[in-house]
Write a protein that binds this DNA or RNA. Sequence first.
DNA 1: CTAGGTATTGGGACCTGGTAATAAATTTGT
DNA 2: ACAAATTTATTACCAGGTCCCAATACCTAG
Lengths: 183, 183
Amino acid sequence: MKRLDKTERQQQLARLFAENPFTTDEELAKKFSVSVQTIRLDRMELNIPELRERTKRVAKQVFNKVRSMTGNELVGELLELELGLSASSILVVTPDMVAEKSQVCRGDYIFSQANTLAAALIDAEIVLTGSARLRFRRPVYLNEKIVAKAFLARKKINKYLIKVVSKVGAEEVFVGKFILVAR
Amino acid sequence: MKRLDKTERQQQLARLFAENPFTTDEELAKKFSVSVQTIRLDRMELNIPELRERTKRVAKQVFNKVRSMTGNELVGELLELELGLSASSILVVTPDMVAEKSQVCRGDYIFSQANTLAAALIDAEIVLTGSARLRFRRPVYLNEKIVAKAFLARKKINKYLIKVVSKVGAEEVFVGKFILVAR
DNA sequence: CTAGGTATTGGGACCTGGTAATAAATTTGT
DNA sequence: ACAAATTTATTACCAGGTCCCAATACCTAG
């Protein structure tokens, strides 16, 4: 690779780190045909921590997400739960939940919050979603807090009709009716 | 903490590492009131790698997942796409998508695949989900491959009715009708 | 021409969280 | 009481850094 000037090199560096944080200074030094120290100085200026720190951050970030998303088997954070009656959860819209171009929260996150909340309401080991009707009433934006409330509307043996209403502040953003089946 | 015997200590260690991989040998040594070397021997016997290696594994694992789940803005892998006409994607059910007790794929993943696929079909910068009707026809299990096909059914100015059918093999597992709005 | 600023490089001391190996001390089972 | 199992200590070494200091090259303005 040709020797680049400082600003160009730093731009590429920033891009590379975003793409793949698992590169050592030494590898980068070779790639750019500069000394390791130069890379270190670049990192300083760009405020990019060392490899191990970067790795740790990625790991922690996602470890937490995986826990809250799949570990708990609940999307969002449970606020309140009365088994078989009602439940509520809150979900804060983070950058990874929004579509890049519109900055609007993707519908599947809103659905997931509602769906997992509905499932949490049911006092059974195994709960399947049978069918659902959804209405997304207005877009939800970055950093907004979605509070979902689920109520049991009807129950027939092992089938549950659950209504979920999600609001941002006082505004309704989503309504869903779920039929869940317990096994 | 009381001194435990070897087997008990190792059991607890294994549990701790699963729960939180970001602990150094030294911290653990203190917690169990044994020497650092003892912890190292335990790790050896349990075949647990050192802190940095553990961190790296978690990071890499999730780095990939985040990319495929949110980076692409598509859940599943796109197989085919004719803008404005039809599209299909495949999603392999991995352990993190199934509910622990039932080993059944959670409905929100199936929905996400369908919803993002429907959105991909539309040739517009900003696409919002307006409403949807879903039917989950049978549970989907670990390692099954869900192939979703989306068709544009009707279009009215900026509103699109899209039908998505998801199958495992020849079996229909999910059907959804989505009304999407382009902005 | 020369002094000063910017960019790059090299080297040394030190840090963390380990591995590997070897030996010594302690505990335990019988 | 004695061997085996377990634990601890000690030392040397490594990767991938940090922090700091000094040397060099190059460009530019006075």
